[in-house]
Computed example of a mutant assay.
Amino acid sequence: MRHPETIETLSRGRAFVDATADMLERVRRIRARRPSPSGRVIPEVDGTLRLTDMYIAPGTIAHSTDYRELAADIMAAIHESTRDAVRQHKLAIEDTAWPEIPEVQWVARRR
């Protein structure tokens, strides 16, 4: 038979692991898609800030007369999508219902 404090500690540990798993699942579902200033490019950035997909409107590359302008348009869209993914990531962390962890002498707390 386990000591009641051991049972309580294991229960709190499971609650923390479950809260972390829920938060990570919300992060995994993040997909940020923000169009470029021209609207011709829409990248997709995930919750770990990876570029996972990119839509380029038909004819955009063929009709582009200045590759620097097209590159700037693409980079602006990636930047905005990344900023939105960061915002969503922060919300996923902030919205997580973390269990109470009691203060104990032998565990140093970072502040």
Rank of each mutant, 00 (worst) to 15 (best):
I7T: 13
S11W: 10
D66C: 05
V104F: 13
T9W: 03
A19H: 04
M23W: 10
E94G: 03
T48V: 10
R29W: 01
W106R: 15
T60Q: 07
D18R: 10
I30L: 09
P35Q: 11
E44C: 12
L70P: 00
H63Q: 14
I42V: 15
A19R: 04
P102F: 09
I61G: 03
W98Y: 13
L51C: 05
R12E: 13
V107L: 15
S11E: 15
R40Y: 09
V27L: 11
V17Y: 14
I61Y: 03
P37A: 13
S38G: 08
R2K: 06
H89I: 02
L91E: 15
V27S: 07
T96N: 03
A77K: 03
I42W: 08
R14F: 11
P102E: 14
Y55C: 01
Q88L: 09
M75H: 06
A92W: 01
P4Y: 11
P99G: 10
A108N: 14
E69I: 06
L49I: 07
E44Y: 06
I74D: 00
M75G: 02
I61S: 09
S81H: 00
H63L: 13
A97D: 14
D53H: 03
D18K: 05
R14Q: 11
D22Q: 15
S38Q: 08
A32R: 05
H89M: 06
A19T: 07
V41N: 05
I74E: 00
